[in-house]
Nucleic acid binder design. Structure first.
Lengths: 212, 212, 212, 212
DNA sequence: GATGAATGAGCATTCATTCAT
DNA sequence: CATGAATGAATGCTCATTCAT
């Protein structure tokens, strides 16, 4: 096989590193961590097996880096968008934006497979689970809780359950993600419909008590 | 090592088979399918490696039998309970019973790990996914939809979203299950509180429109 | 499975022993010694795996007994027939009888597979090879040599080569046997034609020099 | 263990491949296909177990390659020698050359063990048997038949039996080969004497009828 | 840096042999 | 005696990792 051009610049190295991460995502999500073969990762990234070890010290670390780096950026973007001080969105609007973001940044991208990997393998990768809890979950739930809290304070909506369990806002997203991976071939799921229906339920549920 | 007493009767065989399945559940859920070692399964079941093969022809089949048999029975029990004709439960009562069942039959038992295995490995075991969709998911969603449908018909509650997406009833259960496996050590989840909060939301959301 | 009737009489035991030997021949000649499974031998003999060990102490010994016992009897019969003092056969007649015997007692019976087993596995079973050399080969070659010798002495035929190399009389039989096992499906061999042709050659070759 | 120098060039690879084939021949002919251990092959070739799999995808294929490649070349050489148009050899001379070739290229080399492997295991390797029939046997018999045919046509010798059954020319070679493997330790065989005796017989048998 | 040949620990599976029933 | 469940050593094959080129 042709020998790849040595990656002399920082940019070259970053590009090659990314190629390996991309390939790794494909292989890990197709086969799972244990069954994925580093040789296949290398082949998919168009590098030699040994080259992978120039960028990642082990299969384990490669996996960790993969799930660690892929999600951080989208989550930060979301935070900036939803918490921007100038935006005075209602909680329904926030949730709608949240589901739209889930759809466009997670479900419809390779990030869906990253999240699925975390759900599937996280229990065996304590650092991954910790990282996800800290960087993604905590942060995401915090966002929801923050909005729900503000809303409840103004009396604009009965969002007290979401304050205590912001997880509930994420629940349909989890369902959509898992369904897509597991059952879509047997019974396709209308993800948007699901989100809309859930939003409709929440909206009615959060209706403030009518004034006398 | 001491030789196990030969399992001559049908009962003995069933017991040993079950011991192997139990051990397999432990190993598979601790390590995942690919990384689990049949030798460890055997050791945990207190039999020799070769004995496992007297009961299951391969690791693959052992895994499939494991997830296939463990869940069927509880699901059927649930169906009988919820659809018993004499019971005229409101949808809120049904959901409450459902969450209680989830709690006692899934979350608090080894079945939790079985379901997690399905979520984690199902994508690589098409037959498992198909089986689960057919025997567990379809059936479960059918139950919910049936109740929601009856309820909507009587006008007793606005359950039309649950008719279209009974998945939503299961969503918090999925969240609770995954959370338990992944993040409980970092931030314990009050599962009952979660279910209660969700029920409260649903109850308000399904409030029928007040008559004029 | 039904438990076989215990073999109480000597006859019973002999019959069961023979059933196992028959089954062993089938399995060993289909798969070779190493690849043959004792479990299959037992199944074919309609006994349990453990029963085989009541009759033969190991797979090795079973194989040795098999090839040891099967051939002895036919060879002794042949000897009695060919060397019967009253028969004053010419060497051509003896050879013809020999090939007929080869045909009917070896090539057309299960003995063919025994001999093939010896040819194939003998090198790894020194005792088998020794036994065969002593009981079958030596004896057979001795017979031929004896006849050839007598014949040469009378001047009835130029059989001196067969005296020194009685192996040559057996050569076409070996060829026929191997061909049947290996190449018959690709190009069937007319065994009788082969023997006849060889006999014709030998007959002409042994023609005594014409008297002046 | 010392790591073998990586075989980067085509030549290096061919050499290592050959080392493995040589080791495989040793192991297979000592133990038979089923009982030979790939680990021993590797050790004998001074490589690690895994290395064997870089050159041959399975034990089966290793065996097939072994018997496939070893014989072809000598057979082709023989064909070129015997059928060279300029050589106008008598059939006796051809047979003599043939036996000399058998001796120097088969019986006295590792090829003897290859042929014995084919005779022993061929029945379980249909492709091997087919290959041998096609490339070696058919071709060899064709050569003999061709010469015998030419000879018969000129009336120079009565070789009609060899035309119909060229197998007969090969018979003593088969006998010599098997004897060497099985019985030589008990009763050494004078292979050259055997061939000479056979040639003497054939020569007399093929004597053309004396003209009146 | 990049390569990919070499390594050998690791694991699923088989099967001769044992022995409790 | 007969059985066949149980055993565990043995072996083909894989693949993460190393390192000579």
């Amino acid at each position: 096989m042709a020998r790849s051009r040595p990656a002399r610049t920082e940019e070259d190295r970053a590009a090659r590193r990314q190629a390996i991460l991309d390939a790794a995502l494909d292989e890990f999500s197709e086969r799972g961590f244990a069954a994925a073969r580093l040789e296949d990762v290398a082949a998919r990234a168009r590098v030699a097996k040994g080259t992978v070890y120039l960028y990642f010290p082990s299969k384990h670390v490669l996996f960790e880096e993969l799930v660690r780096t892929a999600i951080s950026e989208p989550v930060q973007k979301l935070g900036r968008r939803l918490l921007a001080p100038e935006t005075a969105l209602s909680i329904e609007e926030v949730l709608q934006a949240f589901y739209r973001w889930i759809r466009s940044e997670i479900l419809d991208t390779k990030n869906r497979r990253i999240v699925h990997l975390v759900l599937a393998e996280g229990a065996r990768f304590p650092e991954i689970a910790a990282f996800y809890h800290r960087e993604v979950i905590s942060r995401g739930l915090g966002l929801i809780r923050e909005i729900a809290s503000r809303t409840a304070a103004t009396g604009a909506a009965r969002s007290e359950e979401l304050v205590r369990f912001p997880h509930l806002a994420a629940a349909p997203a989890i369902v959509a993600l898992l369904w897509t991976s597991l059952f879509d071939r047997h019974e396709p799921l209308d993800t948007d419909g699901l989100f809309d229906a859930y939003l409709a339920l929440l909206t009615r549920a959060m209706q403030p008590d009518e004034p006398p």
